[in-house]
Design a binder for these strands. Structure first.
Ligand SMILES: [Mn+2]
Ligand SMILES: [Mn+2]
Ligand SMILES: [Zn+2]
Ligand SMILES: [Zn+2]
Lengths: 131, 131
DNA sequence: ATTTCAATTTAGAATAAGTATAAATCTATT
DNA sequence: AATAGATTTATACTTATTCTAAATTGAAAT
């Protein structure tokens, strides 16, 4: 049931996402593939990203920008975006369970999870701004 | 400095968003304008939504769907989306201050705010499912 | 080894949401 | 009435992504 078929192109896409320090968009992945000497159809890159997402090897992130980003960390975590430079960092601190419970009570929903995008100014931009 | 110029079309768009029970997309707003006998250019609806957003009369929501939604409630609140029927409801339970502080510590960011989209199954879909 | 068939890749067309542009229309002020 | 700035309109364009149909690949069966 969980057969994973990593073709050359899927493997290459996966490698890009896995070794990325940031959270690359599909376009970022495309560029990095070219840098590494590949040239795949862009439909293939999108197909691969979706395949890898479906197989839970990567996660698709919608951070409120126009393009999705991709993340090889599939453990539960959230993100923080710098309003100044756009960099995206991990947020590992979990939102308190009590908050989720309260939201369930308030709304009558059965709560499954939450996507959180924190906004702020990163350390680097903070120090740059102090002059 | 805070002059607000509500033209006929801006007023009409604002009325749609203000009286909406849901959180309409630009396309929803378009359709409802037509229902009320208006016929504005596509661009005008987008311009109006942006104008109203800039003047803080409404808020633009990016809930991870392809299209933005609009909200006449401008006070601080979050949203919950039903995974089954797609309905969007308000979450008024505030995010714990302690969590924000902890995120700031963890990431080194100066935290300005957070956008949360909770996911789950609404009361209606929950009861429908029990048969 | 050759055939076969499903899965995959490819190039390019199509779609969806939103933005940009330039001409036409409004509106407030002289 | 004349002018000028703001706004609206129709339409072209952009960006991100999906769809399509033909070509290619590769494993399994002969
Ligand atoms: Mn991440
Ligand atoms: Mn709301
Ligand atoms: Zn920054
Ligand atoms: Zn529902």
């Amino acid at each position: 049931m969980k057969t994973i078929n990593l073709t050359t192109q899927r493997q290459a896409v996966y490698d890009i996402v896995r070794t990325a320090e940031d959270h690359p968009t599909a376009a970022d992945v495309m560029n990095r593939l070219v840098e590494r000497g590949h040239s795949f159809a862009y439909g293939t890159v999108y197909n691969s990203l979706r395949y890898l997402t479906d197989k839970d090897l990567i996660r698709e992130l919608k951070l409120g920008e126009t393009a999705s980003r991709y993340d090889a960390r599939t453990d539960d975590h959230q993100h923080i975006v710098c309003e100044v430079c756009g960099r995206v960092d991990e947020v590992m601190t979990a939102i308190p369970e009590s908050w989720m419970t309260q939201v369930a009570e308030e709304t009558g929903y059965e709560v499954a999870g939450a996507h959180i995008v924190v906004e702020g100014v990163c350390a680097e931009c903070k120090s740059k701004r102090k002059k």
